[in-house]
């Protein structure tokens, strides 16, 4: 499983980083960054999905 953020829709709610701080961070403006390049470790997959389900802008893309 991989995650990415559509930066055109991300408006920096930071709810992804609240749900999955190991997977998402913040850039200098407060918009999302993805901290894990490549596959998300199995134990963090649940958190990553939770982040997706909490993003009000639906900016997080999960690909299996």
């Amino acid at each position: 499983m991989k995650v990415s953020v559509d930066m055109g829709s991300c408006h920096g709610h930071q709810m992804c980083a609240i749900a999955a701080p190991e997977v998402f961070g913040s850039d200098e403006l407060g918009n999302a960054t993805v901290l894990i390049a490549g596959d998300i470790p199995a134990e963090l997959e649940g958190k990553a999905r939770r982040a997706e389900a909490n993003c009000p802008e639906r900016a997080i893309i999960i690909s299996e």
């Binding site: 920096g12 407060g30 939770r50 389900a53 909490n54 009000p56």
Partner: peptide, 20 residues
Amino acid sequence: REHNRHVAFGSGIHRCAGSN
């Protein structure tokens, strides 16, 4: 609550800048 796409801080380009 697991799924919470709440919009207390708005949505879109005016998302509350002070939310953090």
